[in-house]
C-alpha cells in the first residue's frame, strides 16, 4: 500500500487523465485507476466524489446525466480548460519525478 499523500497530491492528474480518454461515471474512474496501477491506487472510493465535484466547480470537467446500461448516471466529461491544465500537470509531474529519481539514484 502506497502512502496516501502521494495519491492525493496527484489525483487531479490521474482523474483528468482517465477522463481525457473517455467520459466516465465515478465507479468507472475508480476501476480504470485500479486496473492501470496494479491495485496500487486503492483509494477509498468515496473520496473520489468530493474531488470530482471540486474539479467540476473549477470547470475542468462537466457532468451530464446520461443513460448507461439502462440507468441514469452522472457521467463526467473533460473540458477544454481541463485538457489544458492536464497538460500542465503532466509536464510538472514529469519534471518533479525525474528530479526525485536523479536524487535517489545516489543513495543506492
Amino acid at each position: 500500500m502506497i502512502d496516501k499523500g502521494y495519491i492525493s497530491g496527484s489525483t487531479r492528474l490521474l482523474v483528468l487523465n482517465v477522463l481525457q480518454e473517455k467520459a466516465c461515471h465515478g465507479y468507472e474512474i475508480i476501476k480504470v485507476l485500479k486496473l492501470r496501477s496494479n491495485d496500487v491506487f486503492d483509494m477509498k472510493e468515496g473520496t473520489l466524489y468530493p474531488i470530482l465535484h471540486k474539479l467540476e466547480n473549477d470547470e475542468y470537467i462537466i457532468s451530464k446525466n446520461e443513460m448507461v446500461n439502462g440507468r441514469m448516471r452522472k457521467v463526467y466529461h473533460i473540458t477544454d480548460k481541463g485538457v489544458k491544465v492536464l497538460a500542465e500537470d503532466k509536464a510538472q509531474w514529469k519534471e518533479f519525478s525525474s528530479a526525485v529519481n536523479q536524487v535517489i539514484a545516489f543513495g543506492g
Binding site: 477509498k44 472510493e45 468515496g46 473520496t47 468530493p50 471540486k54
Partner: peptide, 13 residues
C-alpha cells in the same frame, strides 16, 4: 471510506 469525511469534503464542494 469514512462517510463523515466524505460528507465534509463534499460540503466544501
Amino acid at each position: 471510506g469514512n462517510p463523515v469525511e466524505i460528507g465534509k469534503e463534499l460540503n466544501k464542494a
